[in-house]
Design a protein around this nucleic acid. Sequence first.
DNA 1: AAACGCCGCAACCGCCGAGGT
DNA 2: AACCTCGGCGGTTGCGGCGTT
Length: 401
Amino acid sequence: MYFAAFSFSLIYKYRGHPSINYHPLIHFLPFQSPPPPSICLCFPVTYCLFQDKETTITMGRAPCCDKNGLKKGPWTPEEDHKLITYIQLHGPGNWRTLPKNAGLQRCGKSCRLRWTNYLRPDIKRGRFSFEEEETIIQLHSIMGNKWSAIAARLPGRTDNEIKNYWNTHIRKRLLRNGIDPVTHAPRLDLLDLSSILGSALCNPSLFNLSSLLGTQTILNPEVLRLATTLSSLRQENPEMFLQHLQDNQVLSSQVQNQVSLSQANQFQNTIQEPTSSQFLSPTQLMQTDVGGLSCQNSLQNVVPSSLDDCLVSQVPNFVSCNTNPSIPDKLAGNSGFQPINNSCQNYSIESVLSTPLSSPAPLNSSSTFVNSSSTEDERESYCSTLFKFEIPESLDMDDFL
DNA sequence: AAACGCCGCAACCGCCGAGGT
DNA sequence: AACCTCGGCGGTTGCGGCGTT
């Protein structure tokens, strides 16, 4: 297969060379036979601009390149031109000898990366589509950081590009939605759980501390400690309870209003019992923005039957890890969310907490994406819905992979 | 307008398995 | 069998762009 570049019409601002506008390779025409000489002449090949050192081979293959004196860093248009020209004529591969033959003072590895990640003619550039993003998320939930495998199912996208896109866009969006990008499960540790507790504690009919404490093996100890403290205060000293909530910044404006109302009524149970029609399904819960976490929303529109229900909806992956016999009935299974990792062998709170680059800041930060376009917002909303998918039990992972 | 800090992404680094000598 | 490179991969880095102050 031969390729010939025929258009440099599109402008590309070359990285590292702000003053140079070019695109190294916008279009290629496939040829079933060698391209006509006129096209070949457009890209004259410069052979062997430098002489390789003599390499003495005592065992194994000769070294691919001598790292001394080889250029590193951003590629220049001239280098791209040479590499493209050479590969047009000889095809990719044989990267060890390619730099020498192409007249490049680069390591073969660098040439291969430049070609596969940037210059290859079938690379699709531009923004990822919804479909591509959905595919990436779904494949990542199955394959993990197997970027090459994911890229193999996204024509025109390179593993490097997908990896970058994941780390810079999808990953952050998942975190902001309270979804762990490693396990694809909701992350309680990064949510504003104090708001949950504040909301729940404001409504005694909703709060089941004993059940919550039964989850101590899987919940953040700090959350449990806070829950215990608040529960005690609520019973013993409602005013101090309110103060404690405020000190811990656990009250949103809605919650504060609710607490004030409750306080005025001296914590009499004035809140109507919720009706089943008021409940959000787990799927709906997943679709709510973390900033308006379901339990927080409970004081506005929807009231879960208990804090447990809320937790169950948010923590499907913890269910299978539960070893506490006091909670399986509640935690075991009324979530419509299909956990990705049914096995908890390799899963732990620590693993979640140690997620690289993760930080609570982006999750609740409103500044990170202040300038996000509406499209970005749409993607975020859309992203939340991506976790509704289910993996068929019949799926043969070996075949799939 | 300048300084600063964050973000995105191309490129590099280091590791690994396969295979050549 | 030992040693080596190649090709591929995932993780990380560094720099230019850009928005904010």
